[in-house]
C-alpha cells in the first residue's frame, strides 16, 4: 500500500542570534543553514497495517507524513501510496487518503460541525445513502449526537477532535496519516479516539501511520513501529521483538511478608530497588518462570508481579545506542 525508497527532504533555514543585536544583524544579513529533515528513509507498509512512527520532535516524522500525503515534494527518493505518486495530487489519490494533524481544523469555526460535514460530502462526492450510513456509524462510535449541532467554537477540545476525525474520515479513506491525533486530550478521550481508530482499521482494512507523543497510543494500536532519529530510521519492526532485543530482562516486583536481609535477596537476582518489604529484581527473560517459582518457594512472598520495562525507557535506550554507533 505504501512504498518508500530513499526518501529525503532538505530545508534551508534562516538563523538569528538572541537579543536586539542579533535581530539587527539578521535584518541586514541572514544566516542560512541546510537541514536534512528526512535523510534517506525506506520502508514498505502492507494494506491494513497499523504502524507507529516514533521519534523526538524534529526527527522527521511530520515531514515524512507530509511527503506521503503529497503536501511536500521529496528532495530525493520516491514514494508511492496506493499506487499513486503523492505529489501529483490526483483527485482519486486525495479521495483515498486523509491526514490529521493535531487540532489544525478543517471545520468551519462559527458553524455547527454538521455544516462542515455537508461541505465535505459534496467535495468528496459522497452519495447521500452512503453519507447517511457513514454518519450513523461515526455518530455511534464517537458518541456525536449531542455535538453535531453545536457551533464548533463552543465545543471542548475533545469534542472538536472527535468531529475533526469524523470530517477527515467521512470519505472512508484507505490510507490514514495521523499526526498526534490525541495531543492535548484527557486520558478518557485518548482511549476513545484510539478505540475508534482501531475499529475503523478493522472495518475498512485501512492502512494507518500514526505518530504520537503518548506511547500508549502506539502500544495500543500498532504491532509494528518505525523509530526515526535525525531523519534516519533506527528501528523498523515488531514492537514485541523490539522489547526482546533491546531489553532482554523483565522486572519482577515482590512484596514480602517480613524483612529479609539484602545479602539473602541478592543471591536470587540483581536488585533494582529495595525499600523495606518491596523488592524489584531485574530477571533475564529466559529465566523468568524458573526464578519466579524459586522465589515463591523460598521467600515469604505476599505478592508478585512481572512487567516489561516502560517502553519510553526502551526507546530512549535505542536512541542512545544509535547515537553511540554514529559517533564511533
Amino acid at each position: 500500500m505504501i512504498e518508500v525508497r530513499n526518501l529525503e527532504k532538505h530545508y534551508t533555514v534562516a538563523e538569528k542570534e538572541a537579543g536586539l543585536a542579533g535581530s539587527l544583524k539578521s535584518f541586514f544579513k541572514r544566516q542560512i543553514r541546510v537541514v536534512k529533515a528526512v535523510d534517506g528513509v525506506s520502508f514498505q507498509i502492507a494494506t491494513g497495517e497499523m504502524v507507529g512512527f516514533l521519534g523526538a520532535n524534529g526527527a522527521g516524522k511530520t515531514t515524512t507524513l507530509k511527503m506521503l500525503s503529497g503536501l511536500l515534494h521529496p528532495s530525493a527518493g520516491e514514494a508511492r501510496v496506493a499506487g499513486f505518486v503523492p505529489f501529483e495530487r490526483q483527485s482519486n489519490f486525495l479521495k483515498t487518503i486523509t491526514l490529521i494533524m493535531g487540532q489544525k481544523q478543517q471545520l468551519i469555526w462559527d458553524l455547527p460541525a454538521l455544516d462542515s460535514f455537508l461541505v465535505n460530502q459534496a467535495i468528496y462526492e459522497i452519495p447521500d445513502a452512503e453519507y447517511k450510513a457513514t454518519m450513523q456509524e461515526f455518530t455511534d462510535l464517537l458518541d456525536l449526537q449531542d455535538v453535531l449541532k453545536k457551533q464548533v467554537r463552543k465545543l471542548s477540545l475533545g469534542e472538536r477532535m472527535k468531529c475533526e476525525l469524523a470530517a477527515a474520515l467521512l470519505h472512508k479513506p484507505k490510507v490514514l496519516f495521523l499526526d498526534e491525533p490525541t495531543i492535548g486530550l484527557d486520558v478518557n478521550m485518548q482511549v476513545r479516539i484510539r478505540e475508534f481508530i482501531a475499529a475503523y482499521n478493522q472495518k475498512f482494512a485501512a492502512t494507518v501511520i500514526l505518530t504520537s507523543h503518548y506511547m500508549a497510543d502506539v502500544t495500543a494500536l500498532c504491532k509494528r513501529i518505525i523509530v526515526v532519529d535525525k531523519g534516519r530510521i533506527i528501528f523498523d519492526g515488531d514492537l514485541a521483538a523490539l522489547l526482546e532485543t533491546t531489553s532482554p530482562s523483565k522486572i519482577m516486583k515482590l512484596q514480602l511478608e517480613r524483612l529479609v536481609p539484602r545479602a539473602d535477596l541478592e543471591r536470587y537476582a540483581s536488585i533494582l530497588q529495595l525499600e523495606g518489604l518491596n523488592v524489584e529484581f531485574s530477571v533475564p527473560r529466559a529465566e523468568v518462570s524458573v526464578k519466579a517459582a524459586k522465589l515463591l518457594a523460598e521467600l515469604p512472598v505476599a505478592d508478585i508481579t512481572i512487567e516489561d520495562p516502560p517502553i519510553e525507557e526502551i526507546i530512549g535506550q535505542l536512541f542512545t545506542q544509535a547515537r553511540a554507533e554514529v559517533n564511533v
Binding site: 538569528k16 537579543g19 536586539l20 542579533g22 535581530s23 539587527l24 539578521s26 535584518f27
Partner: peptide, 13 residues
C-alpha cells in the same frame, strides 16, 4: 519597546 522592536526587525520586507 526593546522586546517588540527586536520582534519586528524580523520582517524587513
Amino acid at each position: 519597546m526593546g522586546a517588540s522592536l527586536s520582534a519586528q526587525l524580523e520582517y524587513r520586507v
